[in-house]
Simulated scan of single mutants.
Amino acid sequence: MSLSRFLCPSNIRAVVPVRLAHASNVPSAVSTDDQPNYFQKIAYRFKGIPLKGETEAPKSMFDAVGKEWSAPEPLPAIPKDFKEHPDRDLTNYPYPARPMYPPKTRLLMMPDSWFTAFQKVTGVSGPYLFFGGLFAFLVNKELWVYEEQGHMTVGWILFYLLVSRSAGYKVDSWLYGEYQNRMNYFKGLIAEDLKDAVEFRKTSAEKTESLKAVRESIPTALKESMQLQLEASYRKNIENISTELKRRLDYLKETEAAKARFEKEQLMKLISSAVDKEIHQASFKEKYLANAIQQLQGLNVKA
């Protein structure tokens, strides 16, 4: 029971139950004829009912009280044929299943499995009478003795129930979000590690497909490639031969030119030395002078 039930009078028609106010997305606004006082406005705030002139419902800290959280996606089940080792006995030792939600309880905290075993024999009230009588017997015979602060256990139980019913929904939702973020982080690491493998697999598949497409043309391509290699080798050999022939012809040409130049130089030396000898002889000088005088006399006669 919330505080708003005591603060709000019973004759106000705009007040709706808490569960209906939580169930609706936007509660109906207060009627224009109503003039709520200070305490009624507090009650409307607790129930999430907008006041006059408000277009959106107020957010209350008690919206999640009493709600049961459920995961949007169930946990993935283990494949039936999964074995971490071939010798694993799944019949006698199956994998433990992780429950998606906590087991059903009674009296807010007692497991339902404690009651079902008695209920088949004693009926619905049998388990309650059994546990109640067992508790009374243990306390009466002082087999279960309370200490001085034993009564505080009831307070702690009530405190746990209060916190779990008020903030349990938000805590479970937050923990689930953090769990998903953590799982996404590890999935990102795995994807990053497998990125190279995925790329290699993709490229290898593409290469395989391309190889299948040109598989029939591979012998022809190899034959043509061999012919091109032979042609290239032939042309290279021809070029080497032509280069070698040109080098040898140039050598012979230079040899003949050097030989002719040497002969010419030797001939010029012989001629120049013979002329020098003839010039320096006395008979040559007299003969040259006599020939010159004769030519001068001939010129005088003609003149």
Rank of each mutant, 00 (worst) to 15 (best):
R13S: 09
K285A: 14
E206H: 02
E286C: 06
Y93I: 10
V275C: 03
T243P: 01
V214H: 10
E265W: 10
P94T: 05
D172N: 04
T91E: 15
S31R: 12
V139D: 14
I12Y: 03
E216Y: 02
Y288T: 07
V139A: 13
V145Q: 09
Y251Q: 06
F62T: 07
S28F: 03
E265F: 04
T153E: 09
A77M: 05
L134W: 09
Y101N: 03
P79M: 06
F262V: 04
P72L: 01
D81E: 15
F135I: 09
L228D: 13
L3V: 09
S24R: 14
E209F: 02
S164H: 12
E147G: 09
L90G: 08
D81K: 04
A97Y: 02
A303I: 07
M110K: 02
S233C: 02
K120S: 15
Q40L: 05
D33S: 00
T55H: 06
M100H: 10
N11H: 11
D250T: 06
M1F: 05
A21L: 04
A57R: 10
Y146E: 14
R201Y: 08
N237M: 10
A303D: 04
F130L: 11
R106P: 02
F137D: 09
M61I: 12
T203R: 15
T105R: 15
G132H: 13
L162N: 05
I190G: 00
W174M: 08
P99S: 12
A290E: 14
V124E: 14
V145W: 10
L222V: 12
R247L: 15
R45Y: 14
M1Q: 03
A117T: 15
S125K: 12
F130C: 07
P94L: 05
D276Q: 11
D193L: 07
D87W: 13
K41W: 05
S28P: 01
K277F: 09
C8Q: 01
Q227L: 01
A29V: 11
L108D: 15
E54Q: 14
K52F: 07
P94K: 04
V26R: 03
K187A: 14
Q297C: 00
F115R: 03
F159I: 06
S31M: 09
S24A: 10
A71E: 07
F137A: 08
Q149E: 10
P219F: 06
K264N: 12
Q281G: 11
L252E: 07
T122Q: 12
M152H: 09
G177W: 03
V198H: 01
D172G: 00
F262A: 07
L75C: 01
S272C: 00
F118D: 13
P94V: 07
G123D: 04
P76D: 08
N240F: 02
S166M: 13
L3C: 04
K104Q: 05
L270T: 15
S173L: 05
V26Y: 11
Y185C: 01
L228W: 03
P99M: 13
K67T: 03
K83H: 07
K52V: 08
S272I: 03
E54T: 06
P17R: 11
